[in-house]
């Protein structure tokens, strides 16, 4: 196929979209709506999962050190805990720092004349929350350690929610993706179906299958890309609106984000739209190209 023909076939695709205006509008709006619903759902799941993960990462192991332990031993213990695999960070929280904070937080308790009764404490953050119990058990074995609090019950509760959000998200997104692919390819199939007579005529004047196929596949790509752009606009409007509502109604949730940037959303929508559009056209045309 020479460059002249390729230029002609690209022109044909745009003329085809323009002259089949109603069909194009129907197809593009179907694609836009299905992609917008899919993208919104995925973003919601990303947001929920990230929120749960953030909550989970706030859990720390509190290690209370026996009161008779001197500062060198505390520092050495901190160093040893840091050496345990899966430990992300260890912060030494000395009792001299804890005592004024304690008094400040409970002003109604009369502490005048009392010696600082608090122990030194280590705040241990773990890389993988699923390993927290193991790490805590390991820390318990150190001689200097008096008590360890690893928030086991609450942590497991949040962990279960995180898992649920993750698996529900994966399964539901997959189901929704399948439905979206089905809806989009049906919309594309319809645009090809109404032109089956044209395809037959083109065959009668000696057009090769590729000559017929290329403009229709390009049309599928145009439909997919236009639908994706509109979907991006709809999702953008949705995010802006939702953010303003959240800021007003639930200010504490304002910092929650999906962790997905606008460029990434656009890229994902465009890829999805273009691939499904092109593949949908390609497969639909094949039926009508049999000699």
């Amino acid at each position: 196929m020479n460059p002249r023909s390729i230029e002609f076939l690209i022109q044909e695709a745009f003329v085809g979209v323009r002259r089949n205006g109603l069909m194009a509008v129907a197809s593009i709006s179907t694609i836009a709506l299905s992609l917008a619903i899919l993208a919104s759902f995925c973003l919601f799941i990303f947001g929920a999962h990230r929120f749960a993960q953030n909550e989970l990462n706030k859990f720390e192991i509190a290690v209370y050190i026996k009161t008779n332990t001197d500062k060198t031993a505390v520092a050495s213990l901190a160093e040893q805990v840091r050496g345990i695999p899966d430990v992300r960070s260890v912060i030494v929280y000395p009792k001299e720092q804890a005592w004024p904070e304690f008094k400040k937080s409970l002003p109604h308790i009369d502490t005048a004349g009392l010696n600082n009764p608090l122990p030194d404490k280590l705040r241990v953050a773990v890389r993988d929350q699923r390993r927290t119990t193991k790490v805590a058990d390991r820390i318990r074995q150190f001689e200097e350690v008096d008590a360890v609090q690893d928030g086991r019950t609450q942590r497991q509760y949040v962990l279960a929610i995180t898992d649920f959000v993750k698996w529900f998200g994966i399964i539901a997104s997959f189901a929704l993706l399948t439905a979206t692919i089905f809806i989009i390819s049906n919309a594309i199939r319809l645009t090809v179906f109404v032109r089956r007579r044209e395809i037959r005529i083109m065959q009668m004047v000696g057009a090769t299958n590729w000559f017929i196929r290329i403009p229709l596949v390009i049309e599928g790509v145009i439909f997919g890309a236009s639908g994706a752009l509109i979907a991006f606009g709809l999702v953008g409007i949705g995010i802006t609106y939702l953010s303003s509502v959240v800021a007003r109604v639930m200010p504490m949730m304002q910092t929650v984000s999906t962790g997905v940037g606008r460029n990434e959303i656009l890229a994902a929508l465009m890829t999805g739209g273009v691939v499904i559009g092109a593949a949908g056209s390609f497969v639909s045309i094949r039926r009508f190209l049999k000699n």
Binding site: Q203, M204, V205, G206, A207, T208, N209, F211, N291
Partner: peptide, 14 residues
């Protein structure tokens, strides 16, 4: 061959 059909049809006005 099916691939040759378009070339046959170019020699026939229908």
């Amino acid at each position: 061959h099916p691939g040759a059909v378009p070339y046959l049809r170019r020699k026939i006005g229908i």
